[in-house]
Design a protein around this nucleic acid. Sequence first.
DNA 1: GTCTATAGCTAGATAGAC
DNA 2: GTCTATCTAGCTATAGAC
Lengths: 215, 215
Amino acid sequence: MATPPSSREKILEVAEALFAQRGFAAVGMREVAGAAGLGKSSLFHHFRSKAQLYYEVLGRVLSRIQGRLDAPLRTAADPMERLQGWVDALIDALAEHPTSARLLLRGLFEDHDLAKAPPEAEQAERVLARILQQIHRLLREGVEAGTFRPVSVPDTVQTLIGATVYHFASGEIGEGLLGGTLFSADAVRRRKRELRVLLHDGLAAAVATPTRRNP
Amino acid sequence: MATPPSSREKILEVAEALFAQRGFAAVGMREVAGAAGLGKSSLFHHFRSKAQLYYEVLGRVLSRIQGRLDAPLRTAADPMERLQGWVDALIDALAEHPTSARLLLRGLFEDHDLAKAPPEAEQAERVLARILQQIHRLLREGVEAGTFRPVSVPDTVQTLIGATVYHFASGEIGEGLLGGTLFSADAVRRRKRELRVLLHDGLAAAVATPTRRNP
DNA sequence: GTCTATAGCTAGATAGAC
DNA sequence: GTCTATCTAGCTATAGAC
């Protein structure tokens, strides 16, 4: 933990911040190099192209997030509790590194010209697909078990993404609404609580869950 | 309506499509010109700079959306019904032009260097602020009237944005989840229905609304 | 592994003919 | 109002010395 980061790690670090804030096209390799304390050409020793650097950054972030989402899905709790745990874990993951949500949101809605995508793009794609597949399966289970209403599962996945990823990616607009940073312990706690209740009351089947508001 | 569009309108039209799909930085004036059937220099006769063109496109989209959102807020219905009407109208607006949501999402979370923003940026900003202020006020009213739970109003605004704008901006990912286009009449109807129930059950105060599911 | 130098290209923006 | 030509500056990427 005290070892200084290698050049490669340092580059990934600063590139993550820059790509998250301004996106792929608006960031130049020269700027990344400067922020990493290197000459521009040194970047091309560590990464074949700008696209490879980008997808390696994106893959790292996705893996970091994915690593947090396995545990809450593996519990034996009922679907509603597993969903709550999944959302909490996702929020924790997004809140831990303020760059994650922006990068992820870009990765989600930006369409990367698959024509000139480097092989690293596939790995990122796979991690993302796995995350989406897991939450999709959980929702389907919950509907089939009668824990959730008969919702449209894909629509609900979309709502979950919007409610988590967009929120923490919203930058100035979100902070203007909230009246402060999105990432303070208070703001994160409140976000979890708000979504917990909204999802509980909004997704629970009508008769099977007469109680309201989980603690 | 049969009059051919002026060059200016044609430019705004094609620029909207390009900016929506790939973002400000990734689109060149040369490309916009080509798509509009003009030489690059002709663009600079109609627009002082790329930034001005971008903000004029964004302002147009925001105004188009804002124009749909006034009516449902001015009815005398209770807050829950006005909210449902607002969400339906927003979804209709976003679904009508598939470029709107992507452009709006970019405008929401991309941070535009305010240093070099043209005066046109302020107008877009004002329209956006007005939209956010109106929905904020409606939610606050509903909470104070006891129609809604005592939710965090800013968090709920964020959730509403995520559930609408992100959904229709999600492109390939969203279509992969849905298994088809986001913009078919069926998909739009389903989106409205899903959000209607989620918001009704998820936001309604506990005792005041014993019934579930609006028709 | 880092550097200087540079290739080859495209960007946004301007000048001025028509 | 549209064009050709051009400016300056930036870009990704490579070559090759150290």
